[in-house]
């Protein structure tokens, strides 16, 4: 089979490009340590969320010195808790599940983004920096009022977080 020399050059360059792309993604996984939403959490009965230990009361819980877990429920057409309040400079793991249809959970303008599928729990861990306010949007069409489905993520200073908590922020 006759292949022109230039085309061979291009073929080689194309393969190198593909390897470079795969290498970049692999670097992102091992360097900065970016992990994918995966199957680590076991399946859940979406009809039984109201009795579930984690999701019957959607909330943020401290589980280590600077480690927090946020149990979030998405349902037509909002997120609970709202707002989600977490301290700055901490490690926060979001556990997000749906009570009804497929939703999205996206902290707008950041890398925190996952599908929310009924029957599954999406788990993503992020590291917060300085205090900031972010919007949370449902980025998967979920029904007639989908465009109204939003929430808030508030990253507050440690003292404000502790203060809010003592003040009985019972979200």
């Amino acid at each position: 089979m006759h292949i022109h020399a230039y085309e061979k050059v291009w073929l080689a360059a194309s393969v190198l490009l593909i390897l470079f792309l795969l290498g970049s993604v692999t670097y992102g996984a091992v360097g900065p340590g970016i992990a994918m939403v995966s199957d680590g959490e076991s399946a859940i009965d979406p009809g039984g969320i109201d009795e579930d230990e984690r999701f019957s009361e959607p909330r943020v819980e401290q589980v280590g010195e600077t480690e927090y877990e946020a149990y979030v429920v998405a349902r037509q057409f909002g997120f609970q808790p709202d707002p989600i309040v977490v301290p700055a400079n901490s490690t926060v793991t979001f556990y997000v599940t749906s009570a009804d249809v497929i939703h999205g959970f996206e902290v707008a303008g950041t890398n925190a983004n996952t599908m929310v599928v009924p029957g599954e729990v999406a788990e993503i861990t992020v590291e917060t920096d300085a205090p900031a306010e972010y919007g949370i949007v449902c980025n998967e069409y979920c029904g007639a009022a989908h465009h109204g489905m939003e929430g808030k993520l508030e990253v507050v200073s440690q003292s404000e977080f502790d203060g809010g908590r003592n003040g009985g922020d019972g979200e």
């Binding site: 291009w10 360059a13 490009l17 470079f20 792309l21 970049s24 992102g28 900065p32 340590g33 970016i34 992990a35 490690t91 793991t93 902290v107 303008g109 950041t110 890398n111 925190a112 788990e123 993503i124 861990t125 992020v126 590291e127 917060t128 920096d129 900031a132 972010y134």
Partner: peptide, 30 residues
């Protein structure tokens, strides 16, 4: 032409992956 395209692709990727994506808030680490 295709060499120029190749250079554009590589530079755009370096920007979008290493600067834009890795530089954003709330990197997912787990």
């Amino acid at each position: 032409l295709i060499g120029i395209y190749f250079v554009i692709l590589v530079l755009s990727w370096v920007y979008i992956y290493y600067i834009e994506f890795l530089g954003r808030d709330l990197i997912v680490v787990g």
